[in-house]
């Protein structure tokens, strides 16, 4: 009798937990699947299920010069912001990661704070700042703003990698006569490289996807992809946007799998 009650208890627990988990996983995957699915419609609207299937909207992408232009801008800004984030962020991480000074702890919190502050408030304040110092909005102001919101990802991942670095390796390297620069190149850098790559990858995605900062810091000539797509979607449900989304999803999955292999992405995010 008591045995049977325990079985029921175990069964109900497993069924409920697994059931909710599967529901959540379907919920997580559904939007991605849906976008790719409807992007192959042959109709003019995003009706579900599509009346028929074709690749016409993917072909249409070749002529969608507005989207292409916006995409090039977003890629350029993201590349610059990522480059600057890695350069400044890794240097800063080296300085603060193994230091017990209060300054280092304060700087660590400062560098990570854009992660929790509302980006829109930061975008607005940057616009106020640039207009006060008389610098008109331009690709330069965009890159500066994007770097501020991207650099925390690089700092977080680099600091975490440096914290795991065994100091005896550096002592061994030094005792064998290696200079500091040589030790850095041959010991520190190879060991923290996966962390830097994962951080740089997330920083790139964060910049490429950023709307709130771009809204305030771009000039009229610099159309950014997420803003272009957002405005296209507010006006009309454009199927070309679905095709572009399909392309972005495939590229993202491919990059994710590559980063998982070379940098252990998922281990760095948990």
């Amino acid at each position: 009798m008591s045995n049977r009650r325990i079985d029921l208890d175990a069964l109900s627990f497993r069924v409920v937990m697994t059931g909710i988990a599967l529901l959540a996983l379907v919920l997580l995957a559904a939007p991605t699947v849906v976008v790719v699915w409807v992007s192959f419609t042959n109709g003019y609207s995003l009706k579900f299920p599509p009346p028929g299937y074709s690749t016409r909207w993917y072909v249409e992408l070749w002529n969608a010069w507005q989207l292409q232009f916006a995409m090039m801008n977003s890629l350029k800004v993201a590349a610059w912001a990522t480059g600057l984030s890695v350069l400044l962020g890794v240097a800063a991480s080296l300085g603060i990661a193994r230091s017990e000074k209060l300054t280092a702890r304060v700087l660590d919190s400062l560098f990570l704070s854009p992660l929790v502050l509302p980006a829109l408030a930061f975008g607005l304040s940057s616009l106020m700042f640039f207009s006060l110092v008389g610098l008109p909005v331009s690709p330069l102001t965009l890159i500066i703003g994007h770097t501020v919101v991207s650099v925390p990802y690089v700092v977080r991942n680099s600091v975490a990698s440096l914290a795991q670095l065994n100091p005896s390796l550096l002592e061994a390297s030094a005792s064998l006569g290696a200079s500091r620069l040589y030790s850095f190149r041959r010991v520190t850098l190879p060991l923290i490289r996966p962390g830097i790559m994962a951080g740089g990858f997330i920083a790139f995605m964060a910049s490429f996807d950023n709307v709130p900062v771009s809204l305030f810091l771009r000039d009229a000539a610099t159309d950014m992809l997420p803003i272009r797509m957002w405005q296209d979607l507010e006006g009309k449900l454009d199927v070309t946007v679905a095709a572009l989304s399909g392309v972005l999803i495939v590229v993202t999955i491919a990059l994710m799998l590559v980063m998982e292999r070379v940098a252990g992405l998922s281990k760095r995010l948990t």
Partner: peptide
């Protein structure tokens, strides 16, 4: 892990757009 990470790295506009398709009057 793939299913969990995918939304994190997909563009937020794309993710939101999918919900418009799912929830719309002609949606799923």
């Amino acid at each position: 892990m793939l299913l969990v990470l995918l939304p994190l790295l997909t563009s937020v506009v794309v993710r939101t757009f999918a919900w418009v398709v799912i929830l719309g009057r002609q949606g799923i």
